[in-house]
Design a protein around this nucleic acid. Structure first.
Length: 115
DNA sequence: ACAATGACATAAG
DNA sequence: GCTTATGCCATTG
């Protein structure tokens, strides 16, 4: 696993309960404005036993993006609702209410440094 | 090094 | 609002 994945995992782990972030947002914080796909890739291959609130990461439309809908999509929504996140009639999340601000550059830098 | 892949993003029809 | 097409990035065979 490369450093990129590790950063994704750490950053996702920092997402507060009841908040959500888009893949693009994470990619931006990692320094790769267009690396959203890679972020999703990282979460897809999430090792078992590693506790990461992956359910708090959704697409820019505020919807569940998971391709493997078989188990995850339903579970993801279930987990988010359990945290207090509400989906509107279009199965979307209100960014203004549940969107995570993210971390400041200083916080991020400290996060990478603390290995 | 090249080609293919994937839980994205955005623009266009 | 939904479907297609194109761009982007890191990982893997």
């Amino acid at each position: 696993m490369g450093d990129f994945f590790s950063r994704v995992y750490r950053l996702v782990s920092m997402i507060p309960k009841g908040k959500v972030v888009s893949y693009g947002q994470i990619a931006r914080m990692l320094g790769s404005p267009h690396g959203a796909r890679t972020v999703g890739w990282a979460l897809h291959g999430l090792p078992d036993g590693t506790y990461v609130p992956w359910q708090r990461v959704i697409n820019s439309q505020g919807r569940i993006s998971t391709s493997c809908l078989q188990h995850d999509a339903n579970l993801q929504r279930q987990l988010l609702e359990a945290e207090g996140v509400v989906f509107d009639e279009g199965d979307r999340v209100n960014w203004a209410v549940y969107g995570w601000e993210g971390l400041a550059w200083a916080e991020l830098d400290a996060l990478w440094h603390a290995d």
